[in-house]
Design a binder for these strands. Sequence first.
DNA 1: GACGCTTTAGGACAACCGTCCTATAGATTT
DNA 2: AAATCTATAGGACGGTTGTCCTAAAGCGTC
Lengths: 198, 198
Amino acid sequence: MLAASTRDQIITEADTLFYESGFEATSFSDIASAVGISRGNFYYHFKSKDEILDAVIARRLVSTREMLERWEAETTDPRERIMSFFRILLVNRTKIMAFGCPVGTLCAELAKLDHMARGRAEDILALFRDWLEGQFRALGHGEDEANDFALHVLMRSQGLAILASAFRDADYVRKEVDDLADWLDRLPAPGGQTSTRR
Amino acid sequence: MLAASTRDQIITEADTLFYESGFEATSFSDIASAVGISRGNFYYHFKSKDEILDAVIARRLVSTREMLERWEAETTDPRERIMSFFRILLVNRTKIMAFGCPVGTLCAELAKLDHMARGRAEDILALFRDWLEGQFRALGHGEDEANDFALHVLMRSQGLAILASAFRDADYVRKEVDDLADWLDRLPAPGGQTSTRR
DNA sequence: GACGCTTTAGGACAACCGTCCTATAGATTT
DNA sequence: AAATCTATAGGACGGTTGTCCTAAAGCGTC
């Protein structure tokens, strides 16, 4: 196996550090020592901290797209695809309980910092939204309805993540994911009124 | 009217700065210049940044409790009380779209920082949860059901805040609050199965 | 072996961080 | 008026931040 390039290692370590400690709280030294290189060498690969953030977000965009494509390849049933989305909430519940949602918390932090990369981080969220909307459309729902449902799923995932990390309750995550699956099962037939609960 | 003491002013400015810029990103100098005092004078009132955070959280706890008591004094109808909770989401939508939920984002940041005050911040969220649970119990719901409903409302508020600030869509906030009011209207009668959607 | 390119280490740099000390101005009491 | 207490300003402190420079090590190619 090819060893990961230093640049890739930097992005990898920065990614987890940004997630687990926050962007602002993570220093150049933190990343450097995590990778095992000197602080000086850093400047050769990235000219600023913002450049690392850009690279991290770019990689997250790519890996998210890949994950969504994998879900699409696994099954043609949109319901099952949406269930894949629900399942990662369960799979990642330990990390979510400790650090929240990687996407949601990054968006929240960059919004407060009024950071340039804010919009790019929100693109990751939009990626999920558009993909979910596509699945609901594939289920036969109209554009507005599909968009509402997509936002509903996203909203509940984000709320779930915040409460899970605030109350650190693994059972709560399980319960909420069950609830989401139940909501999906009981979805009104396509063409009905645009209500997300019922 | 009595002029606010310097100490109070510090807490006030720190409160809004922590909300709008984040705790980590807010420096002593930021607070000092917002209050209009010298950085040195600071140490007389607070010995550390953590002490200010403690004071800010303590004040938020008090003001939250007062707000909940006000809502209880305004009406005896639990449904109307819960509607008061929904309404602040609408009233504060501009700030929410810019900086998210003050409580949720603080909890998320302190979790990543692994900060001592993390639990105290989460107490504010617990305050809302317990109050909401009380209202649902007053509506006749059992302990488990009332707790589920309270967590459901909290979850949706947090998810709403994240999506509102990520997509900066005022209409979305209005729609979600309408949806919440609708959910409350269609709540299953007390004693039924513990389902949060239906 | 000499050259050129890529990659690295180490440290300089000014700015800022949270913390802490001290001198003093202002107010209150004696 | 003197003494005392509260509140403030200003700056020192060691450490860390993000940024940037320079010297040199590694390495493939002629």
